[in-house]
């Protein structure tokens, strides 16, 4: 079993406009990027569970080969900066991804 944090160079979150939060995992090399795709590591069910949001609010998951990256985008719980906001830039919402592992099979 391999920890995601050992094979990823970037695990981050950020607003994509005021309505969306986008999560990026950039792998250190092509091997682990492809391994994550083979395992379907980042998928709507997982993101829904990790972030306690309905699956319909997981707006998309995109693999971007030029960067060895997989991205998931969710609907923000509230529009950026609305009353009750906790993270205006959305830059500290990545932590639930840190505990993921690959090669569990």
């Amino acid at each position: 079993m391999t920890r995601l944090i050992d094979v990823a160079s970037v695990i981050r979150s950020k607003n994509a406009g005021p309505y969306e939060l986008t999560l990026d995992v950039i792998f250190k090399d092509r091997f682990w990027y492809e391994q994550a795709l083979r395992e379907n590591l980042i998928n709507p069910v997982l993101i829904s569970r990790l972030y306690n949001v309905p699956e319909v609010d997981v707006l998309g998951i995109v693999a971007f080969e030029p960067a060895n990256a997989i991205k998931a985008t969710i609907r923000r719980p509230m529009v950026s900066g609305a009353i009750g906001e906790t993270d205006v830039y959305g830059a500290q919402q990545h932590a639930p991804l840190l505990a993921l592992t690959l090669g569990s099979a």
Binding site: K14, A16, I26, G60, V62, K71
Partner: peptide
């Protein structure tokens, strides 16, 4: 190219 975007393509 991914940064702050929901779809890099």
């Amino acid at each position: 190219t991914l940064y702050e975007k929901s779809d890099p393509y």
